[in-house]
Simulated assay, not measured.
Amino acid sequence: MNGRWLLANRDFLVRDLVRDYCTVYSLLADQRHRFDVDGAVSYTALRDLLGEAMRKGVFWRLKDTAHHLFRNSPGIEAVAPGGMPSLELPPQGDIPTESGNAAEQEQIKALRRHADNVLPGGAGAQKALEGLIDWCIGYAFHECAKLKEDAFQGQHYANRLIQISRIPAVTADMYNPLRGLGGQTSESSSRELSRIMHVLAHGLRLLASYLAVERHNAHLARWLASEEDFARRIFGQSYDHLLASLYGNDRERLYLMAARDFLHAGRREPARALLAKAHQGGSLGLEGLTLLRELDREAASECGGSGICAACGKKNSLPCLPFLAGQGRGCA
Results as ranks from 00 to 15, higher is better:
residue 30 D to E: 09
residue 312 C to A: 07
residue 299 A to F: 03
residue 145 A to W: 10
residue 60 W to T: 15
residue 291 L to H: 02
residue 43 Y to L: 00
residue 323 F to N: 04
residue 17 L to I: 05
residue 177 P to H: 11
residue 281 G to Q: 04
residue 144 C to A: 10
residue 202 H to E: 10
residue 98 E to Q: 07
residue 293 R to K: 07
residue 265 A to L: 14
residue 64 D to Y: 14
residue 84 M to S: 03
residue 310 A to T: 06
residue 303 C to I: 04
residue 269 E to R: 11
residue 232 R to G: 08
residue 25 Y to C: 11
residue 20 D to H: 00
residue 274 L to E: 08
residue 167 I to Q: 12
residue 282 G to N: 08
residue 292 L to S: 01
residue 35 F to K: 02
residue 158 A to Q: 01
residue 167 I to T: 09
residue 277 K to A: 13
residue 57 G to F: 13
residue 72 N to D: 14
residue 142 H to Y: 13
residue 125 A to C: 06
residue 223 W to D: 14
residue 5 W to Q: 05
residue 287 E to R: 11
residue 30 D to S: 05
residue 196 I to S: 12
residue 312 C to E: 00
residue 30 D to H: 02
residue 99 S to M: 03
residue 198 H to G: 12
residue 236 G to F: 08
residue 153 Q to L: 15
residue 123 A to G: 12
residue 29 A to I: 01
residue 269 E to V: 04
residue 39 G to C: 00
residue 233 R to T: 10
residue 327 Q to G: 05
residue 243 L to P: 14
residue 309 C to E: 06
residue 15 R to W: 02
residue 236 G to N: 07
residue 282 G to F: 03
residue 312 C to R: 03
residue 62 L to D: 13
residue 150 D to M: 10
residue 49 L to R: 11
residue 34 R to V: 08
residue 210 Y to H: 09
residue 282 G to I: 01
residue 309 C to L: 01
residue 207 L to T: 12
residue 172 A to S: 13
residue 188 S to E: 14
residue 192 E to N: 15
residue 35 F to W: 04
residue 217 N to R: 07
residue 162 I to E: 15
